[in-house]
Protein backbone atom coordinates (compact mmCIF):
# COMPACT_ATOMS: atom_id res chain seq x y z
CA UNK A 1 0.00 0.00 0.00
CA UNK A 2 2.97 2.25 0.62
CA UNK A 3 3.74 3.01 -2.98
CA UNK A 4 0.14 3.78 -3.79
CA UNK A 5 -0.21 7.01 -5.65
CA UNK A 6 -2.18 9.89 -4.18
CA UNK A 7 -5.83 10.20 -5.00
CA UNK A 8 -6.63 10.80 -8.62
CA UNK A 9 -7.94 14.28 -9.32
CA UNK A 10 -11.42 14.74 -7.97
CA UNK A 11 -13.48 15.93 -10.94
CA UNK A 12 -14.72 13.20 -13.20
CA UNK A 13 -12.66 12.82 -16.37
CA UNK A 14 -13.99 14.81 -19.29
CA UNK A 15 -16.11 12.51 -21.36
CA UNK A 16 -15.60 12.34 -25.10
CA UNK A 17 -18.33 14.08 -27.06
CA UNK A 18 -20.31 10.97 -27.89
CA UNK A 19 -21.34 9.39 -24.64
CA UNK A 20 -23.37 6.46 -23.60
CA UNK A 21 -27.02 7.29 -23.41
CA UNK A 22 -27.45 6.16 -19.84
CA UNK A 23 -30.45 6.54 -17.63
CA UNK A 24 -30.20 6.75 -13.86
CA UNK A 25 -30.37 3.48 -12.03
CA UNK A 26 -33.30 3.72 -9.72
CA UNK A 27 -33.77 0.85 -7.39
CA UNK A 28 -33.71 0.15 -3.74
CA UNK A 29 -30.21 -1.25 -4.02
CA UNK A 30 -28.91 1.84 -5.78
CA UNK A 31 -30.31 4.06 -3.07
CA UNK A 32 -28.69 1.95 -0.39
CA UNK A 33 -25.38 2.02 -2.19
CA UNK A 34 -25.60 5.78 -2.41
CA UNK A 35 -26.47 5.99 1.27
CA UNK A 36 -23.61 3.81 2.32
CA UNK A 37 -20.85 5.13 0.12
CA UNK A 38 -21.93 8.71 -0.52
CA UNK A 39 -19.72 10.52 -2.96
CA UNK A 40 -17.32 7.63 -3.28
CA UNK A 41 -19.78 6.40 -5.87
CA UNK A 42 -19.97 9.01 -8.55
CA UNK A 43 -22.57 7.53 -10.81
CA UNK A 44 -25.32 4.96 -10.65
CA UNK A 45 -26.71 4.36 -14.09
CA UNK A 46 -28.23 1.84 -16.31
CA UNK A 47 -27.67 1.19 -19.97
CA UNK A 48 -29.71 -1.27 -22.03
CA UNK A 49 -31.24 -2.45 -18.81
CA UNK A 50 -27.90 -3.30 -17.26
CA UNK A 51 -27.03 -1.48 -14.08
CA UNK A 52 -23.65 -0.23 -13.14
CA UNK A 53 -21.99 1.93 -10.56
CA UNK A 54 -18.93 4.06 -11.10
CA UNK A 55 -16.88 4.32 -7.97
CA UNK A 56 -13.64 5.63 -6.62
CA UNK A 57 -10.96 3.00 -7.16
CA UNK A 58 -10.09 2.97 -3.46
CA UNK A 59 -13.61 2.03 -2.56
CA UNK A 60 -13.98 -0.90 -4.95
CA UNK A 61 -13.08 -3.71 -2.59
CA UNK A 62 -15.19 -2.21 0.14
CA UNK A 63 -18.12 -2.00 -2.24
CA UNK A 64 -17.64 -5.59 -3.33
CA UNK A 65 -17.57 -6.64 0.30
CA UNK A 66 -20.68 -4.69 1.09
CA UNK A 67 -22.50 -5.99 -1.96
CA UNK A 68 -21.56 -9.49 -0.97
CA UNK A 69 -22.72 -9.28 2.61
CA UNK A 70 -25.63 -6.86 2.30
CA UNK A 71 -26.75 -7.26 -1.26
CA UNK A 72 -26.12 -10.97 -1.60
CA UNK A 73 -23.95 -10.49 -4.66
CA UNK A 74 -21.99 -13.60 -3.88
CA UNK A 75 -20.71 -14.48 -7.34
CA UNK A 76 -18.02 -12.41 -8.97
CA UNK A 77 -18.52 -13.12 -12.62
CA UNK A 78 -15.63 -11.31 -14.13
CA UNK A 79 -12.98 -8.70 -13.69
CA UNK A 80 -11.70 -6.94 -16.71
CA UNK A 81 -10.36 -3.63 -17.85
CA UNK A 82 -10.71 -1.30 -20.78
CA UNK A 83 -7.90 0.89 -21.99
CA UNK A 84 -8.77 4.47 -22.93
CA UNK A 85 -5.37 6.01 -23.69
CA UNK A 86 -6.83 9.44 -24.37
CA UNK A 87 -8.54 9.85 -21.04
CA UNK A 88 -6.60 11.16 -18.05
CA UNK A 89 -7.50 8.07 -16.06
CA UNK A 90 -6.37 5.58 -18.55
CA UNK A 91 -7.83 2.29 -17.45
CA UNK A 92 -11.35 1.45 -16.58
CA UNK A 93 -11.65 -1.51 -14.25
CA UNK A 94 -14.86 -3.45 -14.55
CA UNK A 95 -16.19 -5.88 -11.97
CA UNK A 96 -19.24 -7.87 -12.94
CA UNK A 97 -21.25 -9.30 -10.08
CA UNK A 98 -24.21 -11.58 -9.91
CA UNK A 99 -26.53 -12.49 -7.11
CA UNK A 100 -28.07 -15.91 -7.08
CA UNK A 101 -30.88 -14.96 -4.74
CA UNK A 102 -31.87 -11.76 -6.55
CA UNK A 103 -31.07 -13.06 -10.03
CA UNK A 104 -29.54 -9.75 -10.86
CA UNK A 105 -26.32 -8.48 -12.31
CA UNK A 106 -24.49 -5.33 -11.50
CA UNK A 107 -21.25 -3.87 -12.73
CA UNK A 108 -18.91 -1.82 -10.62
CA UNK A 109 -16.48 0.31 -12.54
CA UNK A 110 -13.63 2.56 -11.62
CA UNK A 111 -11.19 4.61 -13.63
CA UNK A 112 -7.58 4.49 -12.64
CA UNK A 113 -4.55 6.30 -14.01
CA UNK A 114 -1.51 4.45 -15.20
CA UNK A 115 0.60 3.15 -12.35
CA UNK A 116 -2.19 3.19 -9.83
CA UNK A 117 -2.31 0.00 -7.80
CA UNK A 118 -5.87 -0.94 -6.97
CA UNK A 119 -6.48 -3.22 -4.06
CA UNK A 120 -6.95 -6.87 -4.86
CA UNK A 121 -10.38 -8.38 -4.44
CA UNK A 122 -9.02 -11.86 -3.87
CA UNK A 123 -9.82 -11.58 -0.19
CA UNK A 124 -13.49 -11.14 -0.93
CA UNK A 125 -13.97 -13.47 -3.85
CA UNK A 126 -11.49 -16.28 -4.38
CA UNK A 127 -12.13 -16.23 -8.09
CA UNK A 128 -10.54 -12.78 -8.31
CA UNK A 129 -7.17 -14.44 -8.07
CA UNK A 130 -6.85 -15.59 -11.67
CA UNK A 131 -9.03 -12.88 -13.08
CA UNK A 132 -6.77 -10.22 -11.63
CA UNK A 133 -3.75 -12.06 -12.85
CA UNK A 134 -5.19 -11.91 -16.31
CA UNK A 135 -5.87 -8.20 -16.04
CA UNK A 136 -2.30 -7.73 -14.88
CA UNK A 137 -1.03 -9.85 -17.72
CA UNK A 138 -2.99 -8.04 -20.37
CA UNK A 139 -2.98 -4.45 -19.10
CA UNK A 140 -0.17 -4.22 -16.61
CA UNK A 141 -2.42 -3.14 -13.77
CA UNK A 142 -0.81 -4.31 -10.56
CA UNK A 143 -3.14 -5.24 -7.76
CA UNK A 144 -1.80 -4.55 -4.32
CA UNK A 145 -2.26 -7.32 -1.85
CA UNK A 146 -2.70 -9.97 -4.51
CA UNK A 147 -1.46 -13.36 -3.29
CA UNK A 148 0.31 -14.41 -6.46
CA UNK A 149 0.60 -11.77 -9.13
CA UNK A 150 2.30 -13.40 -12.09
CA UNK A 151 1.63 -13.49 -15.76
CA UNK A 152 -0.95 -16.11 -16.55
CA UNK A 153 -1.52 -16.42 -20.26
CA UNK A 154 1.59 -14.88 -21.74
CA UNK A 155 5.04 -16.36 -21.23
CA UNK A 156 6.79 -15.25 -18.08
CA UNK A 157 9.37 -13.13 -19.88
CA UNK A 158 6.98 -11.39 -22.21
CA UNK A 159 7.53 -7.69 -22.69
CA UNK A 160 4.65 -5.29 -22.68
CA UNK A 161 0.96 -5.70 -22.07
CA UNK A 162 -0.91 -6.96 -25.10
CA UNK A 163 -4.35 -5.50 -24.61
CA UNK A 164 -3.17 -1.95 -24.23
CA UNK A 165 -4.21 0.07 -27.21
CA UNK A 166 -0.68 1.20 -27.99
CA UNK A 167 0.77 -2.27 -27.98
CA UNK A 168 2.67 -2.93 -31.20
CA UNK A 169 1.44 -6.37 -31.97
CA UNK A 170 3.46 -7.18 -35.07
CA UNK A 171 6.79 -5.99 -33.81
CA UNK A 172 6.46 -7.85 -30.55
CA UNK A 173 5.34 -10.98 -32.25
CA UNK A 174 8.23 -10.96 -34.67
CA UNK A 175 10.70 -10.33 -31.92
CA UNK A 176 9.42 -13.07 -29.68
CA UNK A 177 9.03 -15.66 -32.40
CA UNK A 178 12.49 -14.93 -33.67
CA UNK A 179 14.01 -15.13 -30.23
CA UNK A 180 12.25 -18.22 -28.96
CA UNK A 181 11.25 -20.27 -31.91
CA UNK A 182 14.13 -19.32 -34.13
CA UNK A 183 12.10 -18.71 -37.26
CA UNK A 184 10.78 -15.61 -38.90
CA UNK A 185 7.25 -14.85 -37.92
CA UNK A 186 4.73 -15.79 -40.53
CA UNK A 187 2.94 -12.45 -40.33
Amino acid sequence: MAEEKPLPPKPAPPKPPATMAVIPWQAELAARLKDRFGDRISELSSYLGQNFAIAQPEAIVEILEWLKSEGDFDYLVDITAVDWPKKPDRFELVYILYSFSRNERVRVKASIPEGFRPQSAAGVHLTANWLEREVFDMFGIEFSGHPDLRRILMPEDWQGYPLRKDYPILQQDEHWVHENVGIESGQ
Binding site: A18, T19, M20, A21, L48, V77, D78, I96
Partner: peptide, 21 residues
Protein backbone atom coordinates in the same frame (compact mmCIF):
# COMPACT_ATOMS: atom_id res chain seq x y z
CA UNK B 1 -23.86 3.40 -30.55
CA UNK B 2 -21.33 4.20 -27.87
CA UNK B 3 -22.00 1.90 -25.00
CA UNK B 4 -21.35 -1.44 -23.45
CA UNK B 5 -23.20 -4.62 -22.71
CA UNK B 6 -22.57 -7.85 -20.91
CA UNK B 7 -24.52 -10.80 -22.19
CA UNK B 8 -24.05 -14.33 -21.02
CA UNK B 9 -25.46 -17.67 -21.97
CA UNK B 10 -25.37 -21.12 -20.52
CA UNK B 11 -22.68 -22.83 -22.52
CA UNK B 12 -22.11 -26.55 -21.98
CA UNK B 13 -19.31 -25.70 -19.57
CA UNK B 14 -20.95 -22.94 -17.63
CA UNK B 15 -21.63 -19.27 -17.93
CA UNK B 16 -20.12 -17.87 -21.09
CA UNK B 17 -20.23 -14.10 -21.10
CA UNK B 18 -19.31 -11.42 -23.57
CA UNK B 19 -18.64 -7.92 -22.41
CA UNK B 20 -18.47 -5.67 -25.42
CA UNK B 21 -17.58 -2.01 -25.35
Amino acid sequence: PMGEAYVSIEAPKGELGYYIV
